[in-house]
């Protein structure tokens, strides 16, 4: 099977400002990759290109199979009930049973007929995940989907994403600026800086991982990001 993501020599500029400066990236089927970087380093731009939302680029960015994305905001249609929002991912008006099953997977079984505006932030984000997953994507793009959630909800979401990934096995590209999040979830952590991938870390730890187990790699990744832990702590 071809790699879901195959990027070679990708350049992207907004006017005179270069955002992506020669990106090479392969993601294997079922691989969980995290893309780390500071704000404005171009990580969200790369994700948007892979999602097909930005086609005005130089170089090759090939994506194979079905792509789904979960954004930082859940982006649910507020005038559709929760299950209809999930069915939206199926691209057909029926599919209530499929939507219900997906809701069960994200542990929101009782909320099928709720209006999105009545959900909490974490619940809405889980619906958004369910909508992305009903398509059985080959590639799941996650654009800081936990960024707007409180710390406790975020922890629960990490477990959920890990379980869903283990169950469905899509290739995942998670964009985040949370080093712990990246190390806890990903097989491979890439550090993006000024439009280039400046470091790559393989995380060969058994799952589910605990925070304590990634401490050592955390220091190294932070160093790649230009953060000196000794002075920062």
């Amino acid at each position: 099977m071809a790699n879901p993501v195959s990027v070679r020599g990708l350049h992207k500029a907004f006017g005179a400002r270069t955002v992506l400066d020669g990106i090479d990236l392969e993601i294997a089927p079922g691989e969980f990759v995290a893309l780390l970087g500071r704000s404005g380093c171009g990580k969200s731009t790369l994700l948007r290109i892979l999602a097909g939302l930005d086609r005005d680029v130089e170089g090759a960015a090939e994506v194979q199979g079905t792509v789904s994305i979960a954004f930082q905001q859940p982006r649910l249609l507020p005038w559709r009930k929760v299950w209809r929002n999930i069915a939206l991912g199926l691209h057909r008006p029926d599919g209530r049973s499929v939507a219900l099953k997906a809701l069960e997977e994200v542990r929101l079984a009782g909320h099928a007929d709720a209006w999105p505006l009545t959900l909490s932030g974490g619940e809405a984000q889980r619906v958004s995940l369910a909508r992305a997953l009903v398509r059985e994507p080959d590639l799941l793009l996650l654009d800081e989907p936990f960024g707007a959630l409180d710390a406790l909800t975020r922890l629960a979401m990490h477990h959920l994403v890990e379980d869903l990934w283990a169950e469905h096995r899509p290739a995942v590209l998670l964009v985040t600026h949370d080093v712990d999040e990246a190390l806890l979830l990903a097989d491979r952590v890439l550090v993006l800086d000024e439009g280039r991938i400046v470091a790559e870390h393989h995380v060969d730890l058994p799952r589910p991982r605990r925070r304590a187990s990634v401490v050592e790699q955390r220091t190294r990744v932070l160093a790649d990001l230009g953060v000196d832990v000794e002075t920062a702590a």
Binding site: Q73, L88, H91
Partner: peptide
């Protein structure tokens, strides 16, 4: 219209 919602629909192939 929230452009974010339109974008989400676009990624879903609408």
């Amino acid at each position: 219209t929230d452009p974010g919602l339109v974008e989400a629909a676009r990624v879903l192939g609408y």
